[in-house]
């Protein structure tokens, strides 16, 4: 392809990527080293609020932002604070304190580390499950009779089509205290079941939900891959007396390896940003994720405060985490690519 053609072909998407990915990233990166605050002043204010019949008036010193007389806007100052926001998120002083006092478990009481623990475990535990379940469905469909293939593919794809927030809310409603499934299980076992009362049951439901939701994606990719397996190799393997498992282990899986890497990459990226499960399951009391932590910093409270600097720092840390996770599979792809390119 001529360079000019190539250029015009990719220009729109490069432009969009610069505008919607690179520019915000740079802005977040800068904001994570800055703090913007309103200039506060102390004034004495009398506030009157209604009771049912009469008002109560109180006079107190209030700290309020200063407003510019001319523009009517709040006066703010922006200062460079170095790694202060990162320090506020990571709270390394408390981490060292916990390590030196021997109470390593206390680290998990710090929001960031609590979130990191769950996010990493969630990502790494669901990865083999998604690949395994996806491969199993693909093999099952591949061996199914032709008449059933269509309907089976349709049904197994359904979980993937559901919007993640709606999916996690559905699971929540099914399993919450008086949900249909809990009520049925309670009647069946005669025990009081509270899935959302402790961390481990919530986490279990989260793993289940994520695998249920993402496995169809792996299935579709693997199913496509299975159609390209070399039949001659398979047949010669059968003649050589390879069992079903050996054929899978030595012929099919090596053939699908690039696809497995691809799914692992996508899954690591997606899963590290897990958010819907936390919101849908209302699990903040027990389990939080890194993405939720960023969101929590960003949400304004009733008084309109939002911790933009800490949110930016937390977002940058999340990105660094994804890059670290992706290095291994990416290196492998890179080596394969170089090796195979001749």
């Amino acid at each position: 392809m001529k360079f000019k053609t190539f250029f015009w072909f990719v220009a729109p998407s490069v432009f969009m990527m610069l505008l919607f990915i690179a520019a915000p990233l740079v802005s977040v990166f800068i904001q994570s080293f800055q703090v913007t605050q309103p200039v506060m002043q102390q004034i004495e204010v009398e506030t009157c609020t209604p009771g049912f019949l009469t008002q109560t008036c109180t006079t107190e010193m209030k700290t309020v932002p200063t407003i510019d007389e001319e523009t009517g806007k709040t006066i703010t100052t922006t200062s460079w604070v170095g790694f202060q926001s990162y320090a506020n998120v990571l709270q390394m002083d408390k981490v060292w304190e916990a390590i030196s006092s021997g109470a390593v478990g206390d680290i998990l009481q710090i929001d960031f580390w609590k979130a990191l623990r769950f996010t990493l475990m969630f990502t790494l535990l669901t990865l083999p499950l998604v690949i395994g379940v996806g491969l199993m469905i693909a093999l099952a469909v591949n061996n199914a009779a032709k008449a059933f293939k269509g309907p089976i593919i349709f049904v197994s794809l359904l979980p993937f089509i559901i919007t993640p927030v709606i999916g996690s809310l559905s699971i929540y409603w099914l399993f919450v205290g008086d949900g249909i499934l809990t009520a049925t299980l309670e009647r069946w076992t005669g025990q009081d079941i509270a899935m959302f009362a402790q961390a481990w049951t919530i986490e279990l439901l989260m793993y289940f939900y994520r695998v249920w939701h993402v496995a169809p994606f792996a299935f579709v990719i693997f199913y496509a891959g299975l159609q390209t397996v070399n039949m001659d190799t398979l047949e010669s393997a059968i003649i050589d007396g390879a069992s079903r498992f050996e054929r899978l282990r030595y012929v099919i899986v090596p053939h699908l390896m690039p696809l497995i890497i691809f799914i692992a990459l996508i899954h690591l990226m997606d899963c590290y940003r897990t958010f819907e499960e936390i919101v849908g399951f209302r699990s903040q009391a027990h389990v939080i994720s890194l993405q939720w932590l960023t969101y929590d910093f960003m949400v304004p409270d009733d008084a309109g405060n939002r911790a933009i600097s800490r949110a930016s720092a937390s977002a940058m840390l999340t990105m660094i985490g994804i890059v670290v996770l992706l290095i291994l599979p990416l290196r492998r792809t890179w080596r394969d690519h170089k090796g195979g390119a001749h």
Binding site: T47, T63, V64, A285, H286, D296, D301, D302, A303, N305
Partner: peptide, 17 residues
């Protein structure tokens, strides 16, 4: 209704669980 109370409310909500 103060700025500090908003911040305090968030801190309470995050640390009490």
């Amino acid at each position: 209704s103060t700025t500090q109370m908003g911040l305090m409310h968030t801190a309470l909500g995050n640390e009490l669980p």
